[in-house]
Nucleic acid binder design. Structure first.
Lengths: 242, 242
DNA sequence: CGATACCTTGACCACTTTCAACGTCCGTGG
DNA sequence: CCACGGACGTTGAAAGTGGTCAAGGTATCG
């Protein structure tokens, strides 16, 4: 919470201007947000929120990657969300977080104090509407993940995970799927996301590598060498076409 | 979709009046809803929506139990939600469902056509606000379930499941936890909810019974005989007190 | 260059699944 | 009213997947 407060970028030049909670706002509405926003920076590994802690501000991720995690008494943890730029943290009407929010890489947040933000929600339907959309998107994602956690094998989980990274990368980089991925998560973090152990993750990644489905030397940088095979392995409906 | 259309109950006498999406409405707003709502009935086992199908209405559950389910190509299925009276089906701005909705018992729905309902949302902030709350509650529930699916053992899953039923029963019946539960799900449906097989569910229920934690003779009616033990087994934070 | 954190691989073990048989409940029809 | 059939549930034995424990390897940062 003692994260350094950076000079704000102007909303009109903000990299997430057209995707975040403010995406539907007109110039006037943006001016209001501009006045109450504060940038905060976190370093890789910093805790952004602690579970059960009062949450006095809400935020959008401007850059970096953060995770939502839940932990059992004995230390078993499960990641319940992966936050990427333009994702939103916090919910109106709730003062407490139900999970830990952790910065995986260095992270910049665009923060609004909770109460002024809630007042703004009432006055600015466009923000409220966008927030509903965001919540419903998260809900869909959570449910897909439930299917993965409950019913997929380790191999399928890992293939699905990589495929998901490819897909979201495509959104950023245009139509052609960018098959080179920079993956900021450790094996253990991947395991916590997939409901596996780090050893199992390592084993199956090695297997996929030796099968020629993907490649990596460095531990951060992956290249998908056979996207079709990857998708076949992931176990999702093959032709869920439109 | 060809469910019989029943005579509507008046909103003012509706059993879910104070919990559903309409709970914040005043008399005037209720009158508007009253005009566009239609009751539909489904029999146990009926499919309410099919995955991928256009969803031309949204609805609240008036009575009965329904499930949200996702299925992999090879037939593995995972339940991603359990819908009880006052729960809401559908989302504004989405025309397609991403999962199957199935009636587990006989179900009565209070339906609104999607487009008029969406117009109403814009005009009636109280409904929109309540809908955001509902979506965020579902999101929290989904994330708790992700922890369960990803990290809990079969035994813990089942204890958590029973405990959840006790808790939601208490909400209906007052402060004293009602320890007798009518459970309308088969072993297989429980298994699909918990990411297990029906045999594993059966085995662990038997184990809990022989340990004196719960009791059942009939397959529908459970009695929790040792709530404290049940909670200890469920693996959640023991004292997550305020 | 060394320390530390991260990753890989192997051997073994435990839990859940799978396969199978049998039992019980309940509705239907003889 | 009882007999049958089908759906649902229980229990056992065997198999398999992923977890655990352990050792050694590799990147990365001071």
């Amino acid at each position: 919470m003692n994260a350094p407060v950076l000079a704000n970028v102007k909303c009109s030049e903000c990299p997430i201007r057209h995707r975040a909670v403010c995406s539907r706002c007109d110039t006037d509405e943006l001016a209001v947000l501009e006045q109450i926003k504060i940038y905060r920076n976190f370093k890789a590994g910093d805790q952004v929120f602690w579970r059960g802690e009062p949450m006095d501000y809400v935020a959008s991720i401007v850059s970096g990657v953060a995770t939502l995690g839940k932990t059992l008494e004995d230390g078993r943890t499960q990641m319940v969300g992966l936050l990427l730029p333009s994702d939103f943290i916090g919910r109106p009407g709730r003062s407490k977080v139900e999970f830990d929010v952790t910065a995986v890489t260095d992270v910049t947040l665009c923060c609004f104090e909770r109460q002024p933000f809630e007042r703004l929600l009432v006055a600015t339907p466009r923000i409220a509407q966008r927030l509903v959309e965001i919540a419903l998107d998260e809900l869909d994602a959570a449910r897909d993940w439930m299917l993965l956690l409950g019913r997929k094998t380790a191999r399928e989980k890992i293939a699905t995970f990589i495929d998901m990274l490819v897909q979201r990368n495509s959104v950023d980089h245009g139509i052609t799927p960018a098959l080179a991925l920079a993956l900021p998560l450790t094996r253990e973090e991947i395991a916590n996301y997939l409901g596996l152990t780090l050893e199992t993750v390592s084993r199956h990644l090695s297997a996929l590598k030796s099968e020629g489905v993907l490649n990596f030397s460095d531990r951060r940088n992956f290249v998908v060498t056979d996207l079709e095979a990857l998708r076949a392995i992931s176990g999702d409906e093959s032709d869920d076409c439109l």
